[in-house]
Design a protein around this nucleic acid. Structure first.
Ligand code: FES
Ligand code: FES
Lengths: 144, 144
DNA sequence: ATAATAAAAGATAATTTTGTCCTATATTTA
DNA sequence: TAAATATAGGACAAAATTATCTTTTATTAT
């Protein structure tokens, strides 16, 4: 469904959100440990997220990643997915045709579009903070 | 969403269904032409579909691919998707964790599972014949 | 200022997916 | 039975994705 990059991106961002709510920064190493992801690959992804103002990165000692309270309250899953180019879900044809266009639909268009709209809604209505909260409140069963 | 193999698989099967309803076989070359797919890659996919009794292949002159009337009336998109190992959609965790388990859910599990169920339903309720019919009845706008 | 630290950036490598090629096998027609 | 045709199958190649490594840059604390 999502690319690996996107999966790591979401998991990393939730982890950052968890720390930011406590007013703490978190380093690359800690993030990779927490979400069990390859460290250098995760770094690349975090760079992209930082460039797109989804998270904030700081260099130097005491550096690391964090989210502003504004980011915490506004960033939705859709922002991460779009940034990490899983954007295809939003625009592509389900059967892989060059374009998806309701005026020139493929045989699966309307069925596919229906699912896609629901996925879109889900991503646009689910905030990172919300996911972080479900992790905090939930028992230890809620994995990252 | 789907792999290329899966996309080609669906498009090819619909094309075969279209011919089979007219009582005709269709060859690899014709299929690839019709759906604009790489010929040898498409051949591999058709082999898998034939092995899984989704289509029937015949060798030799006058050979080619077809669907039995039984296949035409029973094959659903889900059969193709499962065969071509896009099976992941059915079982995998949306965040890429090793397993997806409602008793040990990731932070996105319930939102993701909801979408997945709808996708599942769509695939299980959409027959190849139905797609072929929408192509036949529809104006030329319905692409493959 | 200097040393230590942590992310940024760019080059490189492994893996998976996608796509191609060549030979073998089965089937039909002459 | 022989020749022609079309799929099957296995080896191979290209491209994209995922993952790693090394060097640079910015920041903090001494
Ligand atoms: S044209 Fe294929 S999904 Fe829209
Ligand atoms: S555990 Fe992640 S989607 Fe079910």
């Amino acid at each position: 469904m999502f690319s690996k990059a996107c999966e790591y991106g979401i998991r990393a961002t939730v982890q950052i959100a968890l720390q930011s709510e406590k007013g703490l920064r978190i380093g690359l190493k800690e993030i990779s440990n927490a979400i069990d992801s390859p460290e250098p690959f995760t770094a690349k992804i975090l760079q992209q997220l930082a460039k797109n103002d989804i998270i904030i990165s700081s260099k130097g000692p005491t550096g690391g990643y964090e989210m502003s309270s504004n980011q915490l309250s506004t960033i939705m899953l859709s922002d991460i997915v779009k940034t990490l180019d899983c954007d295809l879900i939003y625009t592509g044809c389900g059967l892989g045709l060059a374009t998806c266009d309701a005026k020139n639909p493929c045989v699966l268009h309307f069925q596919f579009d229906d699912i896609r709209e629901q996925l879109k809604k889900m991503l646009e209505n689910t905030s990172v903070q919300q996911l972080a909260k479900s992790r905090e409140s939930g028992d230890t069963l809620l994995r990252l």
